[in-house]
Simulated scan of single mutants.
Amino acid sequence: MEREDYFFGEGQTSDSKKIYALVIYDIVDNRKRTKFAKILEGYGNRIQKSGFEVKISTRKFENLLNEIPKFCGSMDTIRVYRISGQNLVYKWGKDDNKTQDDLIIL
């Protein structure tokens, strides 16, 4: 088990203007799901097959929220959890997370 200390808050670090969020999804259509995952790769790091952690500016967070509805049909689910405050993340297994700057690849 690995433990990471996270502080998802305002004014505590040099990243104080960043928004931390977890995006999880269940999209039925393969093509739409693949395209959505590629969009999310431009915002953050994949942590599971259908889960991404993002650390982005407020403006880019709003852009992400505006993009999401076109990928969500009547049989799909997409959730964005905005995270704030001090948290601990306990992890087991492979960790492919890379440091992500404000880079969006379309």
Rank of each mutant, 00 (worst) to 15 (best):
E41S: 12
G11K: 10
F7T: 08
E10H: 10
R59Y: 08
K91P: 00
F52P: 04
K17S: 14
E67P: 03
N30L: 05
Q48F: 02
E2F: 09
Y20S: 15
E41L: 04
E53Q: 11
I56C: 12
Y25T: 06
F8Y: 14
E41Y: 02
Q100A: 10
I68T: 05
K98W: 00
D29T: 08
L64T: 15
G85C: 02
T77Y: 01
E62S: 08
V23D: 02
I47F: 03
R59F: 01
E67V: 02
L106I: 15
S16H: 07
E41R: 08
S84W: 00
F52H: 02
L88P: 00
G9I: 02
R31A: 10
C72R: 10
F7P: 04
E10S: 12
F8D: 10
L106M: 12
F71S: 04
S74D: 15
R46G: 08
I105Q: 10
G93D: 14
G11L: 01
L40H: 04
K49Q: 07
K60R: 13
Q48H: 12
D96S: 15
S16R: 12
I47V: 15
T58S: 11
K70E: 13
Y20N: 15
F7Y: 14
I39W: 02
F36M: 07
L22I: 15
R82V: 14
A21F: 06
R31V: 01
G42V: 01
K35M: 05
L88A: 05
K60S: 08
E41P: 04
F8Q: 03
K38R: 09
Y90H: 08
R79P: 01
T99V: 12
V54L: 13
K98L: 13
L64Y: 10
S16I: 07
L22Q: 11
I83G: 11
S57N: 13
Y25G: 11
I68D: 02
G42N: 01
N63V: 00
D29K: 07
I19E: 12
D26Q: 08
C72A: 10
Y90N: 03
Q86T: 10
D29R: 05
E4K: 13
I105V: 13
I105W: 06
G73V: 01
I24E: 15
Y6Q: 07
D102I: 14
T13D: 09
R33M: 04
D15L: 12
F71C: 07
I78Q: 12
L64R: 13
F36H: 06
